[in-house]
Amino acid sequence: MLETFLNNYVEAAAIILFGVGFTMLLFQRNLIKKLMGMNIMDTGTFLFLASMGYISGRKAPIITDGVQSVEAYINPVPAGLVLTGIVVSVSVTALTLSMTVRLYRRYHTLNIDDIYRMSKHEMEDR
């Protein structure tokens, strides 16, 4: 059991990171910390993805010295997926941050429980 973990330590770390991020996103009351959790969660997934594509002893898939054999290079697809994932994660973070700013301007706090409590006392606009 332990050996499996040690052999796949990158994947294990990635899943732990994912768990940390996920619980932060779920249970932290502070909106900024929630967002940090979201980014940690995504980073965990990216680490997992990147580690899958890497084959030790091989090079990045860019032909420089004329070697064209597939055996010489690592799998480039996961790297492409990571890049796409990063773009998605950045845009989601941006939108969520802008919403956080809007909530902060209105309620002057970042604690989502407090915001919720305050909004309950607020008159319903409709």
Binding site: L31, T96, M99, T100, R102, L103, R106, I112, I115, Y116, S119, E122, E124, D125, R126
Partner: peptide, 9 residues
């Protein structure tokens, strides 16, 4: 207006 931002959050 109102709690839309919170709901969206």
């Amino acid at each position: 207006i109102g709690r839309t931002t919170l709901a969206a959050m």
